[in-house]
């Protein structure tokens, strides 16, 4: 029996305890600890996964209980104030309806004016219906896929006779007849899903300069109808460039235009449905324009980068 046996046993015991401690410790360190830093990485996810509750200032709820409940789904936590700026006079009227229809109408009117001006210039040169047909075909060859057709109205038929059958409006076309009779423009979206076409009818009302050649026409009568057909997705592109030019405080309306658009195909864009529901149900002309710089874009930044840029620079 050597004189240090007890010491070596004590040392062995301590070594075993130390080893056991190290092994135990290794087993108790949480699996995700240290993944990104000296903490349990899973906690980050736990914290991120918490569901946001607050929608907005409670004070809205006091008076707008119905509207409060409308905001639901993915956009449930978008604060009211983001769109309805609370600056004390939160009932500022909206400057015109900026919906897709409005946009398409304005766009179509402009184009129709152009078509009419071309027609007018051609007719003054004494062109006949064949020449006019050629012109409309030429006008139809544009990058927007817009097609142009011209139909004769009652005063023209009276004076020059019916157009060739191929150039007459389809017999059952109620819209054209309506436009010829009433002289009111119309916009309709027709066609299959994903290949929708906006159809705009522009009645040409007789005015003083027309009477120079259309001697049998009377002022106020409808000489004819210009029909413009737009493929919708092409129009969206065009609108997009338009939106980029819009002033900053219009960006919410810009989003709304797109959203109405997308909502025409809810199956394809379910994410906008709830938001659009809210707008449809709750949208009134007295809801004020936006401030705080395009709240939609805070989340949807990738959407329209040029708008974001403008938004910040302004």
């Amino acid at each position: 029996m050597n004189s240090y046996q007890h010491l070596s046993r004590a040392a062995t015991l301590l070594a075993i305890l130390l080893f056991a401690g190290i092994v135990l410790r290794a087993n108790f360190v949480p699996a995700s600890f240290g993944k990104w830093g000296a903490y349990r990485a899973d906690h980050i996810d736990e914290e991120r996964d918490r569901k946001p509750l607050i929608k907005a200032d409670d004070s809205c709820l006091d008076c707008h209980e119905k509207e409060w409940d409308m905001a639901d789904g993915k956009h449930a936590n978008v604060p009211c104030a983001d769109c309805h700026f609370l600056d004390g006079e939160h009932a500022r009227p909206l400057e015109g309806d900026q919906s897709l229809n409005e946009f398409a109408l304005a766009e179509s009117r402009k184009n129709s004016q152009m078509v009419f001006k071309s027609l007018f210039a051609a007719m003054k040169e004494g062109w006949d219906q064949d020449d006019i047909e050629k012109l409309s075909l030429m006008l139809s060859q544009n990058e927007w896929g817009m097609r142009v057709r011209v139909y004769r109205g009652e005063p023209v038929i009276r004076q020059f006779g019916e157009a060739l059958p191929a150039r007459q409006a389809p017999a059952g076309d109620v819209d054209i007849r309506k436009a010829l009779l009433s002289g009111e423009e119309s916009l309709k979206i027709e066609g299959e899903r994903d290949a929708e076409v906006a159809r705009y009818l522009f009645p040409l009302k007789v005015e003083t300069p027309c009477l120079e050649c259309h001697t049998k026409a009377r002022i106020g009568e409808v000489n004819g109808v210009i029909e413009l057909l737009y493929p919708l997705n092409r129009m969206k592109l065009k609108m997009h460039t338009k939106l980029a030019d819009m002033p900053v405080d219009r960006s919410r309306e810009a989003c709304q235009v797109c959203h109405r658009f997308l909502n025409s195909r809810p199956e394809k864009h379910p994410q906008v449905k709830d938001f659009d529901e809210h707008i449809k149900k709750g949208w009134k002309a007295d809801m004020g324009p936006v401030d705080l710089g395009a709240p939609c874009l805070r989340c949807h930044k990738a959407h329209i980068p040029s708008i974001v840029k403008k938004n910040v620079n302004a």
Binding site: S3, Y4, L7, A10
Partner: peptide
């Protein structure tokens, strides 16, 4: 408690 060794010789105690 003694860890199974019972050496309390003078030499062991001097070491202790």
């Amino acid at each position: 408690l003694a860890l199974g060794t019972h050496n309390v010789s003078e030499e062991a105690l001097r070491l202790d």
